[in-house]
Amino acid sequence: MRYSHRQRRVSPYVIFWALLALAGFGVIAFFAVRQPLNSFDLHVAAWVQSFESASLTRIMVFFSTLGSTKFTILITLSAMLILFFVLQHRMELLFLAAFLGGASLLNKLLKIIFQRERPFVHRLVEETGFSFPSGHAMAAFALYGALAFLLWRHIRPQWGRILLIVLSCFMVVMICISRIYLGVHYPSDIAGALLASGFWLSVMIGIAQWYEGRYGAVSEFRLRR
């Protein structure tokens, strides 16, 4: 069976967002490496930490923990079980595994390339390893971005879809802010991580769209227009 060029075409919006995220990451990376202690990072971090209190610190530690590798794996495995046994969509499970695994490998590679040291002023918790881009932020965007993409088509009510997006954005934002508040990442570490993860998500969606158009049977990846 032959497929038309229209069927195989990747959405131009996906290509646009991938290129935009890649360009944005390049700009952030350039300034983060050239000026590790730039005024933007220092002023934004100081403003976020100006709200410090014992109760807020506990909240931020909680969200930071939710973005840790252990909890990310736990949530991912739970989502995979739902996709496999409840929704019975194996290709969606493959997409989720490839996206999260690829985002993790990309983060490790970028940390090795840039080797930016972590903030050393007013650190509320201790962390090891390099700072740019943030692993927590990349993992959060990868996990909740992929889940929002995959679950969107399974939620019919408009309010349900809005709630899905709001909850996904809330989790990503809180995990990102927690890393700045706790003093283990610069704001540019977070921005770079979101752009890198956004680029990878766009690439994976593009691959999914191409695969659907090429083979026609992967209805799980069909974007509702």
Rank of each mutant, 00 (worst) to 15 (best):
L81P: 05
G160D: 02
V203T: 05
I82T: 08
Q49W: 07
W159F: 02
G102W: 09
R123C: 10
H185I: 03
L109Q: 02
L106W: 01
H154K: 05
V218D: 03
V125N: 00
G26M: 12
L94C: 09
M171I: 07
L124W: 07
A146R: 04
F170K: 01
L94V: 13
L150G: 03
G183Y: 08
F141V: 14
G67L: 10
R179C: 09
T69V: 15
L124F: 07
A140D: 04
R116Y: 00
V48P: 01
V173W: 09
V27D: 06
V44N: 04
M204R: 01
I82A: 15
G135E: 04
L93T: 15
H5T: 12
I175R: 04
P36G: 01
G160Q: 06
S68H: 11
E126M: 06
M91K: 08
G135P: 11
G129R: 11
P133T: 04
D189T: 11
R34Y: 13
V184N: 06
F120Y: 05
V14P: 00
R58I: 03
V86S: 11
P36T: 00
G192H: 07
L223K: 09
F141S: 09
G67D: 09
L151P: 01
S104K: 05
R58Y: 12
V125D: 03
L167T: 09
L194I: 12
V173I: 15
L105T: 04
S55Q: 12
H154Q: 07
W152D: 00
S53D: 10
F99V: 14
L56K: 10
G102E: 06
F120D: 12
A21S: 15
T65L: 13
A140N: 05
E220C: 13
L182Y: 10
S4M: 10
L182M: 09
W159G: 01
S188K: 08
F16N: 00
V44K: 03
V121H: 12
V48K: 09
R6H: 13
F71K: 10
V184Y: 03
I180E: 03
V121P: 00
F149T: 01
A191S: 10
G135T: 04
I207Y: 03
M171H: 09
S11Q: 04
Q158L: 12
G192N: 02
L195C: 05
M138H: 06
R6C: 05
